[in-house]
């Protein structure tokens, strides 16, 4: 399977498509902030991310099919957009969580949820197992309506590849 074949062939956006889109930006290696990363590259009529952000850091505009753009000067990494996006297309990343690891905060709607401190398998856009991460936080707010927001630290070398966690086995 050719990972570069693109969104309409493999189901997942290729890195090339992401880098060419208006929404996707990956925080740089010198950046110490946790920032929102959006992978919503098709113009569908949808704007809850814009409405959810308390800092008004995400812009879609009056044409609700516009691709969302995050202003990293305004983004505080609060993660409200992560749960608000109906397409689960937003996560937060920080390259420099600490010396060895990066941070990802992503939406998760499966059972069971992991526990804080648990070692979990992290996956890429194709569901391939990439590395092991450590669960830092599992947020289940009522306002997020059953979309859990999970924070995991993972090895820096997989910074761009990792975007989610492999589902845990049900009993």
């Amino acid at each position: 399977m050719d990972k570069n074949a693109g969104l309409k062939i493999t189901g997942a956006p290729s890195l090339e498509e992401l880098h060419a889109s208006a929404c996707y930006r990956l925080p740089s290696k010198d950046c110490n902030k946790t920032l929102a990363v959006i992978e919503c590259i098709e113009g569908i009529p949808c704007n809850p991310c814009e409405t959810a952000c308390p800092q008004h850091a995400i812009t879609i505009g009056s044409e609700i099919t516009n691709i969302p753009v995050v202003d990293w000067d305004l983004c505080t990494g609060c993660g409200l957009c992560v749960a608000a996006c109906p397409g689960l297309a937003i996560y937060l990343k920080n390259y420099n969580y600490n010396e060895e690891t990066s941070l990802i905060t992503f939406p998760f709607e499966y059972y069971p949820l992991p526990e804080v401190g648990q070692s979990v398998t992290m996956a890429n856009r194709f569901g391939e197992e990439i590395c092991v991460g450590t669960v830092l936080k599992v947020l289940t707010l009522k306002r997020n309506d059953k979309t859990a927001v999970i924070s995991v630290s993972y090895p820096k070398e997989f910074f761009e590849d990792v975007i989610t966690m492999k589902r845990l086995k049900r009993e």
Partner: peptide, 10 residues
């Protein structure tokens, strides 16, 4: 048993 006892949304 095929009942869905625990569901992430329901």
């Amino acid at each position: 048993m095929n009942r869905i006892v625990d569901h992430p949304i329901l």
